[in-house]
């Protein structure tokens, strides 16, 4: 067990981070190259002012019309995304690992808050799953990949939560947690999770078109 732990926090962690970082760079580079060589409109009409205008509007809950049409989803989605990013980066245990292995020290979330936030991510994943099953327009377009991606996000948080509360075999749980976390990290550039990297650009581009060319709002 100790060796497995050593492997997941050691070489596998390096691999996961390398896949994430290099994969993300590769993804951004290939997208940029594709825009430059085969989709020149993207760069020609890109307009930072209108890109930011769109990004800002869509970053504020209940500003876009559609977010007001779906208040519950807006609350769940904003909570989910905020917690999804903050918890893995600023969880005390993670910060301690950075300090222990690399000597970086930075601010961490209060433990109680992080615990609640983790629970919120788990709840949000369940809401997304229920939506996929119950809402016709979502069920109609849901494929196995959507369930896989949801599981990839759900599992590290579930196992992290269980490990923190010492529910189930702790050592197995912590190894699974690290493993699932690494899978999630590595999956970002290669699955739909890449919207983490690309959404500022897709949002910014449509904002540029609506602001610069169409002289209209896009929210």
């Amino acid at each position: 067990m100790h060796q497995v732990y050593g492997f997941v926090v050691g070489p596998l962690a390096w691999i996961a981070f390398a896949v994430f970082v290099l994969g993300s760079i590769w993804k951004m580079y290939t997208m940029y190259r594709s825009a430059k060589t085969r989709d020149g409109q993207v760069l020609a009409y890109w307009n930072l002012k209108y890109a930011l205008r769109s990004i800002i509007h869509w970053s504020v809950p209940f500003w876009p019309v559609n977010s007001r049409r779906h208040p519950f989803m807006t609350i769940v989605s904003f909570t989910f995304h905020i917690c999804l990013v903050l918890v893995p980066v600023f969880l005390l245990a993670h910060v301690m690992l950075w300090d222990y292995y690399h000597g970086f020290r930075f601010w961490s979330l209060p433990e109680g808050a992080a615990d609640v936030m983790t629970f919120l991510v788990i709840l949000a994943c369940l809401v997304f799953a229920v939506r996929r099953i119950l809402l016709r327009e979502v069920r109609y377009v849901t494929s196995a990949m959507d369930w896989a991606v949801l599981a990839i996000v759900f599992l590290p948080f579930l196992t992290g939560f269980l490990a923190y509360h010492q529910i189930g075999p702790y050592r197995v749980m912590i190894i699974l947690h690290i493993l699932f976390g690494e899978i999630m990290l590595a999956a970002i550039p290669f699955t739909r999770l890449s919207h983490m990297l690309l959404s500022p650009f897709s949002r910014g581009y449509i904002g540029s078109e609506f602001g610069g060319v169409r002289k209209a709002k896009d929210w």
Binding site: M31, Y32, S34, A35, T37, R38, D39, Q41, V42, R131, L135, E137, V138, Y140, V141, T142, S143, D146, V149, R192, S194, H195, L198, S199, F201, S202, Y205
Partner: peptide, 15 residues
């Protein structure tokens, strides 16, 4: 190119 690729890939099928 980029647009179609990105749209196909990042759509999270949220409906």
């Amino acid at each position: 190119g980029a647009r179609l690729k990105a749209y196909e890939e990042i759509c999270v099928r949220c409906g």
